[in-house]
Design a protein around this nucleic acid. Structure first.
Length: 923
DNA sequence: TGTCCTGG
DNA sequence: CCAGGACA
């Protein structure tokens, strides 16, 4: 609003905009409500609702881009009442108040408006509509074009030759012609029309039994409301009585719907002129809310406004090294600095299959060096061997801190050229992950943009994308240099920012003592890899192919013709249309054909069972048997999967290329695949050490439940024990079904499963499952207390933490019941919502992940200190796999057990089972 | 992109 | 609950 001490540029009451202007006025609350209801729920990376912010920003960007207004005035309703409340208490009583999920977005929307360079106007005691009416009048009087952006029908009374209402959803102008086609009246009759018809939502009474049609007829005949009311006597039928009886209502209605075109507002056209957007804060906001697409549009808009790229005061000195002498000099300088940021450029994404193209080094922000060792013919590069030897005293010195983004990658690559990098100090990717577990993008480009406001050179601008990508060694050194140097510079600049944030979030210890030291350990695992017998897989592939052929034949006979078994759509057609089997459940796109459904159908027809088998074999063949040989490293004969430290929101590792964490184990065919994973050479064996029931032990620890803790202390089969205690029978009396039930409940608790989910996974009725769970809570009361304590803390803090302080933000946990109500909940098990289940699961699964990470660090160190040749080669959540010379098996087993069991002193002992064999199936 | 399946 | 990957 115009400050009152500013002299008004025009006389009060008149407010002509500069000539030739096109003025857009937005009724913000109207638009916000529209988009809020039109757009499905969206949350920002921080978990706050932002769907209305998104919709509003999108619409405003659309207006700016497409309509190019000279002024874009955003009008908000004032807080508190308006003059209409003063003349009629029931005014707008029918409108529900704004939901919290929406009102929390209003300040965000106002930030966006400010960043876009548009003014916000509010006039106390006057609704936004009245402000629209006033500005519309000014425009009309001055002959300026004015568009009113609102969904409110009241504004139709403002329509003139110059003023129209813009329907932004349909991008249609609603003018006098549209009004005539819609209501059949003129703009000057709008108030009278609405006074007769009324409006339920705004609690405008109107005249009962008069709808749009009769209102139009009356106005056609009499011209306006006053004439209609005066002439009511001449009207025939029931309407006459109604009009006479509700004359006062109609007159009040007219006063309510008529907008005030003279609100006390001083126009300030210079200030209202749509300015250039504030690119920096705009893109910052778009990133904060997670609007990627809008961010790009906003950026373009900002560039268009200034005619040049967004200012980015990035000062940097990047050089490409041209001689080994120069490199030696740089190494000496880096050593003096005591730290170095490293980034390697290579020919491939997989570090084990990649060739080194160059190394970038930096130790002071704003200064970085690129050392090329490969490049297109004719480009000057340094000899690899010389570079390696010159870098060795820098990179292998543990006292020189190594900084970088995804250092594990560089460690594996450099190990490939004979450099064992030591002294890993800070990895920006890991810091970003610890600060925002569950966020998908921890890439350097994103970090730079988000934390430094600097747009980095994209790799695609060098090597292109899609099918005909170049390799980095095919890109001229002159282009690679600045790109690589920047990738060494950026982490250095990010470090202080991230380090401070880690400190603020109590994550320093977890970062410095667990996650960062784990980087070289994981690099070693990846570097070692797992031996796979390609011949065995080839034989298996043939056998599976034969079996699949057989199955396909049988299936087509039963189905009465060929079809694509792999297509759920075609399969559904065969099962439910051609065979007429009953549909069990539906997916978004059609009847479901998943394993549960097929199992249920198997009792009615032989086909589903065959489908299950076919799916199983084709899955195993496609995902493992045929894919694995492709990934075997020609030099090592082993597969070197990638272990990702920053993907899983709970703190677990994940594996890919190939994912060795989901090699089959439950079926016979799956175990045959495991048998193809072998020790690396004759005389070596595999050793698998897995934590027994680690997640349940974590649950026992947190719950402090006597019964559960004692169960673990007794070292008996936990599922049997729980079955006997919950069922109230002796251990010998526990049946198979009871143990299965207990096991399912145990898992259900860890996964926060609902009684419904439990019933489904066990195939028992829902009330039976619910009773099982309540019996469980009755027997182990500490478990429910733990769940409630966890949820209360999550509700309070907006996040949960694991044993080592790893945090995960979770919003949406409902207010917790008072403790008195907990007793009831033992009788009727709690139905947890998704965020609540996630919160419980994260604490348990994340703590288990913490423990095994500690174990990996301890075991890795011990193997090194004891000079063993044995190697850790894989982690599968609760299991560690080792490749060991036969004579080391016993000492290794002892060492591994001791270290794994000793990582933490919980209220229950940690138990480790160890198995060895020539292949993984034997373990 | 959604469905299904493998593991924990 | 959380992941990765194949397939249509």
């Amino acid at each position: 609003m115009t400050p009152s001490d500013q002299p008004s540029p025009v006389a009060p009451g008149t407010g002509a905009p500069p000539s030739g202007w096109s003025v857009y006025v937005v009724d913000c609350h109207s638009l916000i409500f529209q988009v809020f209801h039109a757009i499905p729920e969206m949350t920002s990376p921080q978990g706050e609702p932002v769907s209305a912010v998104f919709g509003f920003t999108r619409d405003l960007l659309f207006l700016i881009e497409e309509k190019r207004p000279d002024a874009l005035i955003c009008v908000f309703d004032p807080p508190g009442g308006t003059f209409r409340d003063e003349i009629y208490d029931a005014y707008k009583a029918g409108r529900s108040s704004m939901p919290e999920d929406l009102s929390s977005q209003i300040p965000k929307i106002q930030q966006v408006i400010a960043a876009l360079g548009a003014p916000v106007v509010t006039v106390p005691r006057f609704e936004a509509d009245d402000v629209l009416a006033t500005i519309a009048r000014w425009c009309d009087e001055a002959g300026a074009e004015c568009r009113l952006v609102t969904g409110d029908k009241d504004c139709r009374q403002l329509i003139t030759d110059r003023v129209s209402v813009l329907n932004i959803r349909k991008n249609q102008e609603y003018d006098a012609a549209a009004l005539a086609a819609d209501w059949g009246i003129r703009p000057d009759q709008v108030c009278d029309f609405q006074a007769l018809v009324g409006d339920k939502v705004d609690n405008i009474p109107g005249v009962p039994s008069i709808g749009p049609k009769s209102a139009k007829e009356l106005l056609d005949r009499f011209g306006n409301l006053a004439a209609v009311l005066d002439g009511a006597e001449q009207i025939k039928g029931a309407k006459r009585a109604k009009l006479l009886q509700h004359r006062a209502d109609a007159e009040l209605s007219r006063r309510l719907v008529e907008l005030d075109r003279f609100v006390p507002l001083d126009p300030d056209w210079p200030a209202w002129k749509l300015g250039a957007p504030d690119a920096e804060s705009l893109s910052e906001l778009m990133r904060e809310y997670g609007f990627r697409g809008l961010g790009d549009r906003a950026k373009q808009l900002a560039q268009g406004a200034t005619g040049e790229p967004v200012a980015d005061d990035w000062q940097a000195e990047y050089r490409t090294v041209t001689s080994l002498e120069e490199l030696a000099e740089l190494v000496a300088r880096a050593r003096r600095a005591g730290r170095v940021c490293v980034d390697t450029e290579t020919t491939a994404k997989s570090p084990r299959h990649a060739e080194l193209v160059g190394v970038a080094l930096a130790w002071e922000p704003g200064e970085a060096y690129y050392v090329p060792v490969r490049g297109p013919a004719g480009d000057a590069v340094l000899p690899l061997a010389g570079v390696v030897e010159t870098l060795r005293p820098l990179l292998e010195d543990p006292t020189i801190g190594k900084i970088g983004q995804n250092l594990k990658y560089d460690l594996v690559v450099l190990r490939g050229v004979g450099l064992r990098v030591s002294g890993v100090e800070f990895d920006t990717m890991i810091a970003s992950y610890l600060l925002g577990a569950g966020e998908r993008n921890h890439g350097l480009d994103e970090l730079s943009l988000r934390r430094l406001g600097h747009e980095t050179i994209k790799i695609t601008s060098l090597i292109g994308k899609g099918k005909d990508q170049k390799r980095m060694d095919e890109v001229p050194v002159a282009e690679v240099g600045p790109y690589a140097a920047e990738d060494a510079d950026v982490p250095l600049r990010l470090l202080p920012i991230l380090a401070q944030e880690l400190a603020q979030n109590d994550l320093v210890q977890l970062n410095d003592e667990v996650e960062t030291p784990l980087v070289p350990v994981l690099a070693d695992l990846e570097y070692e890899g797992v031996r796979v017998d390609a011949d065995q897989l080839a034989a298996l592939s043939e056998r599976f192919a034969l079996r699949l052929d057989e199955l396909q034949g049988e299936i087509e006979t039963l189905a009465g013709g060929p079809f694509n078994i792999a297509s759920p759509k075609q399969l559904a057609d065969v099962l439910f249309n051609q065979l007429g089997l009953p549909v069990q459940k539906r997916t978004k796109t059609g009847p479901s054909t998943d394993a549960d459904v097929l199992e249920a159908l198997a009792r009615l027809h032989p086909l589903p069972e065959l489908i299950v088998q076919h799916r199983q074999f084709s899955k195993l063949k496609g995902t493992y048997v045929d894919a694995l040989p492709e990934l075997i490293h020609p030099g090592t004969g082993r597969v070197h999967c990638s272990l990702n430290q920053v993907v899983a929101a709970t703190g677990r590792l994940s594996a890919s290329d190939p994912n060795l964490q989901n090699i089959p184990v439950r079926t016979e065919a799956g175990r045959e695949i495991r048998a193809a994973f072998t020790a690396r050479e004759p005389g070596w064996r595999l050793l698998a050490a897995d934590y027994s029931q680690i997640e349940l032990r974590v649950l026992a620890h947190y719950s402090e439940d006597r019964g559960l803790c004692e169960a673990f202390a007794s070292d008996r089969d936990i599922h049997t024990l729980v079955a006997s205690q919950v069922g109230g029978v002796s251990i010998d009396e526990v049946t198979d079904a009871m143990r299965r039930g207990a096991k399912a409940v145990n898992f259900g608790i860890i996964y926060g499963q609902s009684p419904f989910g439990l019933a489904r996974s066990l195939g028992i009725p829902k009330d039976e499952a619910a009773r099982f769970i309540s019996d469980y809570f009755e027997r182990y009361p500490g478990v429910l207390d733990f769940i409630e304590t966890t949820l209360a803390a999550c509700r309070r803090d907006g996040m949960v933490r694991t044993l080592l302080g790893r945090k995960r933000a979770i919003s949406g946990v409902r207010p917790r019941p008072r403790s008195a109500e907990l007793f009831d909940r033992r009788a009727t098990p709690p139905q947890l919502t998704l965020p609540e289940r996630t919160a419980v699961n994260t604490v348990i699964q994340g703590t288990a992940a913490d423990l095994i990470k500690l174990a990996m660090l301890a075991v890795h160190r011990q193997i090194e200190e004891n000079g063993l040749r044995s190697r850790m080669i894989l982690q599968i959540h609760d299991e560690l796999l080792f490749d060991a010379p036969e004579e080391e098996i016993d000492p290794l087993a002892a060492l591994v057990r001791e270290q794994m069991q000793g990582v933490a002193q919980l209220r229950v002992p940690l138990k480790v089972d160890i198995k060895t064999g020539k292949n993984w199936a034997e373990c």
